[in-house]
Nucleic acid binder design. Structure first.
Lengths: 244, 244
DNA sequence: TCAATGCAAGTGTGATCACAAATCAAATAA
DNA sequence: TTATTTGATTTGTGATCACACTTGCATTGA
């Protein structure tokens, strides 16, 4: 493993930093988080501390702390062998996750709808056009960018709900459904174009009108899509697989 | 600090253990969890790694991992100084927590109501009588036992909802509202007797009838009580305090 | 040939060390 | 007396070491 000795401190740079410098474990945690939400890890893939430490150019210490944190929010799973893996996809778990997301994200967007400001509305409207830009040069399926844009759009709205309790729960739910979503988006691409931007436009319209009920319904339609799609795909696969 | 060197392994005892032995960090995590849900820490109290390690008779390592996990589920709070404390109580946060608990625990109990078995019903009915036993010898206010019993009753029901996603979220919410609840229960005791068992009986009746709507309403009444009580108390205190 | 045993590499866990930053106290200067 | 600075102590963070357990493969036995 590459040495990562603590370098001598630079007192000048130290005093320039505001108050809270970023720790290595925070960086590692963020990286793993991003990778999980983006679905960069396979479901059922096992992760090793030393392997991740090598990949992230650090020692094992920040990695084990980050893994522990991800395990408590169910983004990863601790096997009885003490090894850790990204949770496998099952139909029951997908239904469970979707139900929880409808419940909590639905509540968050309904709250947010009643608190919209003109500035916020123009912000999320401008995010719609970003979506169109990407479609313009869609010769390459940029799944990463698609995932990032989708996440930014949703959380820009959720932040407006003003609940310091609900938002971390939603982040945890995205973390848990990340691997499924990536699989679903790939399946989308194979099955032909599906207009995510259309669903987002419906959401923005409801938000601009401060109509909580319509916003919730539009959101439910948006987040249900990949789940029902993936569910159909998995059921079709098992029908093909089991009789064989 | 007390030495906690790894003792030599006992191969016989090792092979008797099923598969997953308990790690020290799991023990530490459980202890801190129990202490937080039970409200054994003061709000705004700062916790130090070495202090907890000494108290729990272990090294710093398991403690830091446990603290990191508790911080991610918002049971503790990381200050910019890198020190960690139990979050202070504010009116906004209490309202936020109560709203989330009504939303999620309400959904869980509604789900559970549709899945009740005779065995489960008799289990939670028997828990009611335990409550009466405690009341019989209430010469001593056993707040700890009260908290434990309340927790056991609620989670026995929540487990029946069958959602591996909702239950950890509820645990996180209890963890976050633990400090408030303890303060509220003390305030209850001062303000004279309040019959928790009565609310629980109403819940059990609705559950036995598999009436999801009534169960949800009874639950909301039960969990709202300490919050509205504490809210009134805090508002009264601030009215007395600020003009002075 | 196949199952069982034993060895070696890999992995997680806990303890300890090193270091920088924060905190607190006493001492000094205004 | 009050404000500032200096020094010692405390605390969090990251690296490294030691050890037990797991896993995989090769050797050995029937």
């Amino acid at each position: 493993m590459q040495k990562a000795t603590a370098e001598k401190s630079d007192p000048i740079a130290a005093q320039l930093a505001p108050v809270g410098r970023e720790t290595v474990q925070d960086r590692v945690y963020s990286e793993l988080r991003r990778a999980l939400i983006g679905g960069l890890f396979e479901p059922s893939q096992v992760l090793t501390i030393r392997g991740l430490a090598d990949a992230l150019m650090t020692s094992t210490m920040p990695v084990r702390e980050a893994l522990g944190r991800l395990i408590t929010e169910k983004a990863l799973e601790a096997l009885p062998n003490r090894s850790v893996r990204v949770p496998p996809i099952t139909l029951e778990r997908m239904d469970d996750l979707l139900r929880a997301r409808i419940l909590i994200e639905g509540e968050a967007i309904a709250l947010a709808a009643t608190r919209m400001t003109p500035h916020l509305i123009s912000t999320i409207e401008s995010m719609l056009s970003e979506w169109d830009e990407m479609r313009a040069l869609k010769h390459k399926k940029d799944v990463d960018r698609e995932v990032t844009l989708n996440q930014a759009f949703h959380f820009e709205i959720y932040r407006a709900c003003g609940s310091a309790v609900l938002i971390p729960m939603i982040e945890s739910l995205w973390l848990q459904s990340g691997p499924c979503i990536r699989v679903a988006i790939y399946a989308f691409s194979e099955a032909g174009e599906v207009d995510t931007a259309h669903y987002h436009r419906t959401i923005v319209k409801a938000m601009a009108a401060q109509n909580a009920r319509e916003a919730r319904e539009a959101l439910v339609a948006d987040i249900s899509r990949p789940f029902v799609f993936l569910r159909n795909k998995l059921e079709a696969d098992s029908k093909k697989g089991i009789p064989a």
